[in-house]
Every structure is written in structure tokens, then in C-alpha cells.
Design a protein around this nucleic acid. Structure first.
Ligand SMILES: [Zn+2]
Ligand SMILES: [Zn+2]
Ligand SMILES: [Zn+2]
Ligand SMILES: [Zn+2]
Lengths: 162, 162
DNA sequence: AGCCAATGGGTTATAGAGTAACATATCTGA
DNA sequence: TCAGATATGTTACTCTATAACCCATTGGCT
């Protein structure tokens, strides 16, 4: 049974953004950490769509939105915070960042990344995390983080080829 | 049943190097591509140990070995060739490169990376590749490459803590 | 041999990604 | 309101990677 992920379907993306920001506010409140204007703004920019954004792209967007220059450390600090809180993930193969649709629940960073449209689909497959853990355990390895980055074509883009 | 990977055991590493270079020569010969002196030298440097090396580290090593300056494009072109031929893998999370112990057989890039000693252990678990393929297929995604980078502590380093 | 096209490598300059160090501002609790 | 902690601004720099152009080497081909 094949199911099309949200990121690849037509959907009310304002809803995605709203949910993500609300979840972020709740989480930060409950954890006693500060979701400042800047951090919120960066998170909102990242959620503009389901495609990972680079730090320097975000810098430009920030500069445009705030009509003044923004230096790298500013955006990197905000990104570090969002990463620590699990509100975003880093896509290593792209040097880019994407919003997490389910922060709050601890999970690994598993993504399908379309090279055509740029969409990154976060997987939610505990069985996969488990199997990776098991394989690591069999070699005596203690896992701290997992990063699975699968590249290829999403359903929409693969279809467009045919 | 737990089995310690070669990279984490005492072993005759000259044997690793020798095998890797021999396999590279065979592969390139059979494919009709040229394993030039430079490419061979870079591959040999990468195989100095089981830890991923950055391009700029390799540049320094090349400069020292050849007693003359080596510019980035030189080493990146060699790395690109070795990547295309499947003789090395790129570790995205480290911006670094490591030799592949089984080039020739097509497989995905699955690694356990020790943050303490720097060793990267390549996994050979077709079942894992298969499961990832299946998960992707279920969402209508066409896989081209997989990159699994698991970070943590290898058996030696985890033991050293306790 | 002499030539040609293709491939590989040298060189310079620049783009892209990330951090160190220090100054300033803003919050928070006593 | 004051002090300490946290957050942001600013400058300068490091590390990673690529573009563009030129020259050298290779390996057929006549
Ligand atoms: Zn997530
Ligand atoms: Zn796509
Ligand atoms: Zn391999
Ligand atoms: Zn280790």
C-alpha cells in the first residue's frame, strides 16, 4: 500500500506552518527555554515550504525581511538552538535545514530527498531505527545519533519523467 | 552474537592497503579507466587508516609527499574520480572521505562513525538496504543513493569509558 | 614519425559554509 | 535597581568546494 507524503501532495501549507509554530511555542514553554523573535522568525522561514534551506539563504531572507544586514553567527545561533530543541533537522548532504513535523517525540533523522523538486520527506519508521540500532549493537557500537539521507525522485517528479 | 569489525581490531593494516590498491587496479583495468599516479596516491593516503580524511588534510599530505604545493582542484578531481569508481565513500557529516573495502560490488554507503577515535566502520547489511528501499517505495519514492551515517562510540571507545 | 582529439593536471581566483572572539543589549530574579 | 545570565551584534577568520582557463600527457590515426 502506497501513501503519498504530505510534502508531495497539495495541502494547506499555512496549516503546516501554524502547527509547527504552535508546537514550537508549547515545547519551549514547557521546557523553560526562550523562543525569541529571531528564533521564531528563522523557524517560520524554514517552514516556508518542505524543502531544506541553507544558512546563507536564510540570512538573505532575514536581511530582506528586517531590512538590515544579518551576519552568519546570528543565523547559526538560531539554527543551533532549533536543532538542540529538535525543532529542525540538518540535512548533511545538502548543508541545509528543514523543519521537523513532530518535535517533542524523540526520533532519528531519516529523510527521503528529491533531487528534482528539492522536497525532503521525513520518515517515521521506528522499525527502521530499531533495525539500525540492532545492526550497530551487533558490532559493539553504541549509537548516539542516526542520519539517513536517501536521495532520488519523489512520486511527483518520478511521474513527470515517464 | 557480537563481532568486532576489522577497523576496531588490531590487524595487519598493510594488508588492508595492499588489497585495496590491488582491487582498485583490477577494477580500473577492467573498466578501461585510468588509475593515474595521482589518483593512486590519493587512494593510498586515504587508506592510511580506517578514519575518514578531509580533502584539505589530503592536500597537505600530498604536498608533503611530493615536496610541492598542491591546489584544491587537484585533490578534488582525484576524489571525484575515486567516488565515481566506488573506490571511496564520502562521509557527509564529517566532510571527509574513506576507502571502500568492497568496491566492485554495488552497495550503499552505510557507516558507523566513532566520535572518540574517528574510525568509520562500513556496514554490509543488504537486509538494511532492502528495508530502506521498501520504506521509500511505500511512499512512492525512487531511490538513487542511500547515505546512512550513525554516530556514537565504537566498541573500543565505549569500553574505555566504563 | 607526425598529428589530433581526448583526458588529466596545474594555477588563480572565488564562492559557499561555519566559527572564534569580543562588544552590546536584553532579560531575569534577588 | 542592581547583578548575573542569556541573547544578539560585529568583525574577522577558517574550512570546504568549485569555476575558468591553460598546459601536459596519452593514445589512436594517417
Ligand atoms: Zn523530525
Ligand atoms: Zn520531487
Ligand atoms: Zn563501500
Ligand atoms: Zn572509537
Amino acid at each position: 500500500m502506497e501513501h503519498t507524503p504530505i510534502a508531495c501532495s497539495h495541502h494547506d501549507h499555512d496549516h503546516c506552518i501554524h502547527d509547527a509554530l504552535a508546537a514550537a511555542r508549547d515545547l519551549c514553554l514547557s521546557r523553560g527555554v526562550r523562543l525569541t523573535d529571531l528564533r521564531l522568525q528563522v523557524l517560520e522561514l524554514i517552514w516556508q515550504n518542505h524543502k531544506p534551506l541553507g544558512a546563507y539563504t536564510l540570512m538573505e531572507m532575514l536581511a530582506k525581511a528586517n531590512t538590515r544586514r544579518v551576519a552568519p553567527p546570528t543565523v547559526y545561533r538560531a539554527l543551533d538552538f532549533l536543532l538542540e530543541q529538535g525543532l529542525i533537522h540538518r540535512i548533511n548532504v545538502l548543508n541545509a535545514f528543514i523543519g521537523c513535523p513532530s518535535p517533542g517525540t524523540k526520533h532519528q533523522s531519516h529523510f527521503l530527498i528529491c533531487r528534482a523538486c528539492g522536497v525532503a520527506i521525513e520518515l517515521d519508521e521506528p522499525a527502521l531505527s530499531q533495525q539500525i540500532l540492532q545492526v550497530a549493537k551487533d558490532t559493539g557500537f553504541t549509537v548516539e545519533t542516526q542520519a539517513l539521507e536517501v536521495s532520488g525522485l519523489c512520486g511527483n517528479c518520478a511521474g513527470a519523467d515517464a
